[in-house]
Every structure is written in structure tokens, then in C-alpha cells.
């Protein structure tokens, strides 16, 4: 197979997600009463970037054959914390942002430490730590409320040069300055190796423990960034368990739609971003087509189920039945 053909085959999931998103977004904008204006784009971007960041966060542990069920809780914790400390002058606001991101990274590090040194299963570890983070968020903000530094918030949710949504630029910056360097670093490659085959990775001298620790820490950091962006959108914090659960579950769906294997070692955070965009565009489509609100949850559920069922085409390629159980 040529190099080009190989690359296409290797990124099939990602390309599929991008194609799906482009089709859906074209249908959306062509049916939107106003069309694609800067304001429409910014609103759509602000909503989609939140899930995209959380989905990126989810991708990192999934690549190591783990799972982070606490991303939604870290997201909410960052939201509540930001509504309390990202206030005052612009300088104080930026200090607050650093603190929020630090707390997110610390939450991720705690997950990683328990998984690596405590050797508990990631799914059950993050289930328990998720309760702890949610409790902390509730402690900070027992009822909805709070405030946020409005200059930073307006900038982060507005448009660059009056056209390009700033939130999308932030997402792009995360890809360029966090994801791509991570993907090409020793520990990033190690994460893929660990996800493919942990024993083989260990035998080859791959730093298994550090790779896992970094993956969970970065996941916490990205989820916290998502929570920060949520605060900029809503100007308040709310410790809502349904929102946290919703984001956790949708992040897993976005990861799968983006072509990342839940069995680890295969996929990319960029795919997850488009997976998140697809999920968000579905909701927008329902809006422009004026679907009866009663039918919306069912329609969303069927699209979600159909999208993840696309993964079943894998079994058509299998020649030996024993590969089914891999």
C-alpha cells in the first residue's frame, strides 16, 4: 500500500468523523434562518468547544487502555472554583485561571497515582474520585451563583478580529501547544505503546508508570480548561451532578465517534474534537428543523446508538473468529 493510502487507512476514524461533521454542519448552516454569520459561528463554537475539551481529556486515558469517569466532575469542579476565584482585576483573574488549571491537573494526578501505584481499575478509581471532586465542587458552591472576571470572559467567548470565534482559537492553541507536542513526545508515544500492549511496552523499556501518570494529569488539566470555558460562558458556577454525568458520558461517545478505540493504543484527540462537534451539531440540527421537543431525546439517542454502532464494521474484516474476542 502506498504511504498516502496507508495514512488514509490509518486515520479512517478521524476522516469519517470530519466528513460526518462537515455534512451535518453544512446542512445546519444552510437551513439556519440567518445563515453562517460570525455570531452564529461563535455561539455554535462556544458550545461545542466545551465538549471538545472534555472529549480531548477523555481521549488521553483511553489511549492507555484506561478510562476517566471523573472528567465531568473535574469539569464541574473547575467551573465552581473559577466562579469563586477568577474575579477581581484582569491580573487577579489570570492568577485564578492558573490556580483552576493547577487544581484540575492535581485532580488528574490523583487519579493517575491511584491507578499507577494503587493498582485499582481506572473505571472504579475514577468513579470514586469523581464523587470526591463533585463533593468538593458542592462544598465550594452549595447553590448556583458566583461571578467571573468579565473582561477575560467576554474575550474568551467573543470573536477575534470580529470574525473568528476566540473559543475555537483557544481549542486550536490547545491542539498545537499541548496535544501535538504530547503526541510526539516520549511519554506520549509511550501512552500508545501501553495501550496496545502493556507487557510488551514494559519489556521494551517504555516508562509505563510515567506515561499513565502524565495521561491522567493532562486529562485533569484539559477537563479543568473546559470547566473554565463553561464559567466564561455562563458567568456563574453550579455544582450540577446531571451536567457532570452528561459531559462524562458524551465525552466517551465523542471519543468513540472520533475513531479512538476504547481498547487503547489507537486514535487521536483530534478525532475526539470532531466527535464532540458531531454530537453538538446533532442538537443544533434538531433546533433548525423545528423537531417536536418531545421527539428530540429519542432522536438524539438513536443517532448516538447508530454512530457508535458504526464501529461494528470491524467485524466484517475479521477472517478468523478468534479475533472477535481480542
Amino acid at each position: 500500500m502506498s504511504t498516502f493510502g496507508h495514512r488514509i487507512a490509518h486515520n479512517g476514524g478521524l476522516l469519517g468523523a470530519i466528513a460526518l461533521f462537515v455534512v451535518m454542519f453544512t446542512i445546519y448552516t444552510s437551513n439556519h434562518p440567518v445563515g453562517l454569520t460570525a455570531a452564529v459561528a461563535a455561539t455554535a463554537a462556544n458550545k461545542a468547544v466545551l465538549l471538545a475539551l472534555v472529549a480531548m481529556a477523555q481521549t488521553l486515558p483511553v489511549l492507555t487502555r484506561g478510562l476517566d469517569l471523573s472528567v465531568g466532575m473535574v469539569f464541574i469542579l473547575a467551573n465552581c472554583l473559577a466562579s469563586a476565584i477568577v474575579v477581581g482585576t484582569i491580573g487577579e483573574g489570570f492568577l485564578g485561571i492558573v490556580a483552576v488549571l493547577g487544581v484540575g491537573a492535581l485532580a488528574g494526578l490523583l487519579n493517575g497515582a491511584i491507578v499507577v501505584w494503587g493498582r485499582l481499575q481506572p473505571i472504579i478509581t475514577t468513579l470514586a474520585t469523581g464523587a470526591i471532586y463533585y463533593g468538593t465542587a458542592l462544598f465550594i458552591r452549595p447553590g448556583p451563583g458566583g461571578d467571573v472576571q468579565s473582561d477575560i470572559a467576554d474575550f474568551a467567548t467573543g470573536q477575534l478580529f470580529g470574525v473568528f470565534p476566540t473559543s475555537l482559537a483557544i481549542l486550536l492553541a490547545v491542539v498545537v501547544f499541548v496535544w501535538l507536542p504530547y503526541r510526539n513526545s516520549v511519554l506520549g508515544r509511550a501512552a500508545y505503546a501501553v495501550g496496545s500492549n502493556e507487557q510488551a511496552a514494559y519489556m521494551s523499556g517504555v516508562p509505563v508508570q510515567r506515561a499513565k501518570l502524565l495521561a491522567y494529569t493532562l486529562a485533569g488539566l484539559l477537563a479543568a480548561l473546559g470547566g473554565l470555558m463553561l464559567t466564561f460562558n455562563t458567568y456563574s458556577g453550579e455544582a450540577s451532578s446531571p451536567i457532570a454525568g452528561n459531559y462524562t458520558l458524551n465525552s466517551i461517545a465523542a471519543v468513540v465517534i472520533g475513531g479512538t478505540s476504547l481498547f487503547g493504543g489507537w486514535g487521536s484527540a483530534i478525532g475526539s474534537i470532531f466527535g464532540a462537534f458531531v454530537l453538538r451539531t446533532i442538537e443544533d440540527l434538531l433546533f433548525v428543523f423545528n423537531l417536536d421537543p418531545l421527539w428530540q431525546p429519542l432522536f438524539q439517542g438513536i443517532v448516538l446508538l447508530a454512530a457508535v454502532s458504526l464501529g461494528a464494521v470491524r467485524i466484517l474484516r475479521i477472517r478468523n473468529r478468534l479475533e472477535l474476542f481480542a
Partner: peptide, 22 residues
């Protein structure tokens, strides 16, 4: 279909939720 149970049952949960809302 050999889909991961975590994601398939999640989708099924969403479908059942939709049916119940309807």
C-alpha cells in the same frame, strides 16, 4: 456486533430515555 458494552449500553440508555420522554 462486538461493540464495547460501555458505549453500546450508554447509547441504549439514551434511546430508552427518549422513548420514555415521548
Amino acid at each position: 456486533l462486538r461493540l464495547p458494552s460501555m458505549i453500546f449500553t450508554l447509547g441504549m440508555n439514551a434511546v430508552v430515555q427518549g422513548l420514555m420522554v415521548l
